[in-house]
Design a protein around this nucleic acid. Structure first.
Length: 439
RNA sequence: CGGGGCAUGGCGCAGUCUGGUAGCGCACCUGGUUUGGGACCAGGGGGUCGCAAGUUCGAAUCUUGCUGCCCCGACCA
């Protein structure tokens, strides 16, 4: 993409409404624009990041055997009356009526809808287990939206729902999602730590929050140092095998958010040098809730011995739009964003230091074409801004690599490759630069 | 929802107290000089001062009502 043809409105100053760094940087880098309180448009740069995150989540769900579908944003109130949640949910639920005065709502979550879908299709124990998921926008009319997309009213979520015949089966589904989540966040360059959590209004008795550590995170968390140093299971893990050892490995050490923190237990269980107290952001939440919806909504299958059995269920969320902000909170410096490569909107920013200079233009065009042909995502700053402005803009938007081309280096047939994270620059020939960028 | 604050060009702000017909920096356009970390000079374009009613010869400024947005708290992926 040529910057001169792209749509990326940068701001030099922080808009005054932005309080936290991810919100400031998302606005300044032209990723998002506020439409109204807690509701955002995703501009091209932000949209690319959102899609990258979404795709990683999708791949890890698929790998765990979950099956993608898509449910609507607008739901009928009838299903919610059936589960009993219509009157319980409160003002967070955006209630609307259609032209026939039917009660509708913009879905804050989808347990009712998926249960309705599943009960109408599943007849036999052979139809389970299944994990179904979708990636869809949700709306919760928060009393006070804040921090940009970190706590918006409209947000993009991945939601999975598991259906099993038995409690043991439901635990296996839960374990799959648990492991999938570890891998998902690690692929995005994040350190996530599963922490025991309240089950909240959804109910149930087994639940973990996945917390990403970030200095500017919103909640205070406490955990054993070993958990920070742990890495997620490898790519070759058998998701259909017994995952419970991994679960115990990750849940046997102390980890709690401030809400669940037990200071005495923390100090009793964890040696002083291993105690971590930090800040974090909740990016995922998994629940096992048994028959909470399958009983009132009569979601059953027939078992091998001929009985009608209510299914054992769980739900598993990942805040996709929130992750974009969480990644920035965890990865930035005073100059701007530092994208981990797997979620970067482009891999490389090509900086032409002297547009209009023939040798420089030619070298840039050559690099641009060759990298494009190698399927490298590249943003070419071909504008006639001054060098300093281009450096500042490229640092702000945080592409992992900057390829810097100017007359000074070209005299010796060299260009510079700068690593955004470390700031390290290497002078290389054009061919070497390309070899470094093409895997 | 309780408490506090803000609303003036794309962004950041001054002007409001003390009423006289709108200004600054950045950004944008034109020309020139520049050109490796947010250049300089000159000349331009862009604003029903959130909305409505009122007071007044005259309202960004005073009064009343409304709306939107932000911050703290309670709540939350």
């Amino acid at each position: 993409m040529r910057l001169s043809k792209f749509f990326m409105p940068l701001l030099r100053d922080d808009p005054k409404e932005a309080e936290i760094v991810s919100h400031q940087l998302m606005l300044r880098s032209g990723m998002i624009r506020q439409a109204s309180s807690g509701i955002y448009s995703w501009l091209p740069l932000g949209h690319k990041v959102l899609r990258k995150i979404e795709q990683i989540v999708r791949e890890e769900q698929d790998k765990a055997g979950a099956i993608e579908l898509l449910m609507p944003t607008i739901q009928s109130a009838d299903l919610w009356r059936e589960s009993g949640r219509y009157d319980v949910y409160g003002k967070e639920m955006l209630r609307i009526s259609d032209r026939h005065d039917r009660d509708m709502l913009y879905g804050p979550t989808n347990e009712e809808l998926i249960t309705d879908i599943f009960r109408s299709a599943a007849r036999s124990y052979r139809d389970v287990p299944r994990i179904l998921y979708h990636i869809q926008w949700k709306f919760r009319d928060e009393i006070r939206p804040r921090f940009g997309v970190m706590r918006g009213r409209e947000f993009l979520m991945k939601d999975s729902y598991s259906f099993d015949l038995t409690v043991e089966g439901a635990r296996r589904s839960y374990n799959k999602m648990f492991v999938a989540y570890l891998r998902t966040f690690e692929r995005m360059g994040l350190k996530s730590i599963p922490m025991a959590a309240d089950t909240g209004p959804i109910g149930g008795d087994l639940s973990h929050e996945f917390i990403v550590l970030a200095e500017t995170g919103e909640s205070e968390v406490f955990c054993h140092r070993d958990l920070i140093e742990k890495t997620a299971p490898e790519d070759d893990i058998d998701m259909d095998g017994d995952l419970s050892p991994i679960l115990s490995e990750w849940t046997s050490k102390y980890a709690a958010t401030i809400e669940k923190h037990d200071k005495e237990r923390f100090e009793a269980e964890v040696p002083k040098k291993s105690r971590i107290s930090a800040r974090g952001i909740e990016v995922g939440h998994i629940f096992y809730f048994g028959t909470k919806y399958s009983v009132p909504m009569n979601c059953t299958v027939q078992s091998a011995d001929g009985q009608q059995v209510n299914l054992e269920c769980g739900s598993y969320g990942i805040g996709i739009s929130r992750l974009a902000a969480a990644i920035i909170e965890a990865s930035h410096d005073e100059n701007g964003i530092i994208w981990p490569e797997p979620v970067a909107p482009f891999k490389v920013g090509l900086i032409n230091l002297k547009s209009g200079d023939k040798a420089t233009d030619n070298a840039c065009e050559d690099l641009y074409n060759r990298l494009q042909n190698a399927s490298i995502e590249i943003l070419y700053d071909d504008t006639d801004d001054r060098a300093g402005a281009k450096f500042a803009a490229m640092d702000l938007i945080g592409l992992p690599w900057q390829l810097i081309v100017g007359p000074r280096g070209l005299k010796d047939k060299l260009v510079e490759l700068k690593d955004r994270r470390t700031g390290k620059r290497d002078s290389l020939s054009l061919d070497e630069a390309i070899n470094r960028l093409v895997p």
